[in-house]
């Protein structure tokens, strides 16, 4: 199957088909997905939509759960928000 081009913090990378945004970020070596209220780095914990720790901005929309979204071609992901 063809790989899916996505944009992570301005860089284009290729994700495997059927991977979630969370998986694509971890595979890209990113573990701090967001910055907490007290500015600590946070990443996925439950990976099933419960904990909201993996929030990133997707296509300009903030607070999206990376674990609940499958990668789509051209998707723009911003971390660290």
């Amino acid at each position: 199957m063809t790989r899916i081009p996505i944009v992570i913090d301005g860089r284009t990378v290729e994700a495997e088909p059927e991977t979630t945004v969370a998986a694509a970020l971890l595979n890209d070596g990113i573990w701090g997905f967001r910055s907490s209220v007290e500015s600590e780095p946070r990443g996925p914990v439950c990976a099933m939509g419960i904990c909201f720790e993996c929030r990133v901005t997707i296509d300009g929309i903030p607070h999206r759960r990376a674990c609940m979204e499958l990668c789509r071609p051209g998707m723009e992901i911003e971390t660290g928000g």
């Binding site: 495997e16 971890l26 946070r42 674990c67």
Partner: peptide, 16 residues
């Protein structure tokens, strides 16, 4: 970061 649930680790594995 990278402290996960046990099921969380499994879910991440299954999601790629």
């Amino acid at each position: 970061p990278n402290v996960l649930g046990v099921g969380g680790g499994q879910a991440l594995l299954k999601s790629g």
